[in-house]
Design a protein around this nucleic acid. Structure first.
Lengths: 213, 213
DNA sequence: GATAGTTCAGTGACAAAGTCACACTCGATC
DNA sequence: GATCGAGTGTGACTTTGTCACTGAACTATC
């Protein structure tokens, strides 16, 4: 049974109608939900799991723009749905999960009939704009070593993070060599221990150790 | 009489109603429409003139995120309107003009009553997301000299551009010194002529010369 | 379990961009 | 025409990005 907060708030009658036409799909980790240039069939709601959205620029470099998790709405799709233009970014499943796809017609009907649905869409959109604005600031003005440490810190609870330097470079929008250099420096400072495809957090950041406790 | 394409597409009855409650305001160049942290009173529609939207990061640096011109909708405001959070950015009038402010209640009513209005809002939002995604890519991966040249090129029709190096640094999200250095190099190459607060385009870019003709 | 192939990581050398400190200069004002 | 402030120029240094390469670690196959 699909469960998503923006569907839960719908009045009973509308919810039933919508449910009939929504298809729920299960996605394994690594699956590409959509890629750049593709056209959009409906609005995806993330029910479970996590999805990263990244774009590749004309320069050929890639950067992760944001992530979606349980209860998120793929706001990016709304623009594509409305303008008919293809996606500019690509979405890849990180943790396997499931998504419900709301077809265009149902989306239009929900937007027409439910003020609460509209509010949910608009809020989600506001959050996405905020995320992107913060990312611009981050990329433009923050030092790479700080950004790397913050990224690791945010995942400190894992203990060991399974990621290659190349993937980490895409997360931060930089070059693999830069990540390698900075990680090596962190290792010298006994903050991390490195091995092929893995980063083990050792001394990093008291606060996160406390948070994990 | 306010004139904006998203109002024009409204059915006569709705349009009349809306018009009564919309206030049109005239803004002189330099006026701040809203600044970071402020709360949003309604949805601004740009009728005339141009407005730049810029944010200042925790680092203290600023960057111009995008511009709005005639017929644009301040999509950023929708998020603020819906979530009740304050603005993250600041909007400054560049060329004097006027804007219509749609109060929250009227906005809700139009969203409820007009599919065409909804479409217009969603399209505008899609464009804004696209802009920001392109900006992220631009900032993360493009060389500053190229970005500077493109910025100048886009304004080539002006002939002489009145801007300080500091302002230009905010446009590109970099430091004043970097802009000064790059401009000096362009001057050496006879692409521009520099004077205090002014940049005169001389040899720059055949294409733009043709476009201006 | 040796071999070959592939992916991942490390590194030196150099170029581009950001930072810091300071000098200079233009132009408005008194 | 002296003064002052905003705007600009520049050198020295750090950080980040790029290029070219090496070697190490995993995988598949014989």
């Amino acid at each position: 049974m699909p469960h998503h907060s923006i569907l839960d708030i719908l009045p009973e009658q509308l919810r039933k109608e919508a449910m009939e036409k929504i298809q729920v799909m299960r996605f394994p980790a690594g699956q590409v939900l959509f890629s750049a240039g593709e056209h959009c069939q409906g609005l995806p709601l993330v029910l479970q799991g996590s999805v990263k959205v990244q774009m590749t620029g004309v320069s050929g470099h890639s950067i992760v723009l944001y992530r979606m998790g349980k209860d998120d709405i793929c706001t990016l799709s709304i623009g594509c749905l409305m303008t008919g233009r293809g996606y500019r970014a690509e979405a890849v499943v990180e943790e396997e999960g499931e998504a419900a796809i709301i077809p265009r017609g149902v989306f239009d009907r929900l937007m027409d009939q439910s003020p609460a649905f509209r509010l949910g869409i608009m809020e989600s959109y506001g959050r996405r704009l905020d995320d992107l604005m913060l990312l611009v600031e981050e990329v433009a003005f923050h030092r790479m070593d700080e950004r790397l440490e913050e990224w690791l810190q945010a995942r400190a609870s894992r203990g060991v993070i399974a990621i290659t330097h190349q993937e980490l470079a895409v997360e931060l929008g930089t070059a693999r060599e830069v990540v390698s250099r900075l990680l090596k420096e962190l290792e010298r400072q006994k903050m991390v221990r490195l091995s092929r495809g893995k980063i083990e957090l050792t001394g990093l950041l008291d606060s996160s150790v406390l948070a994990g406790a």
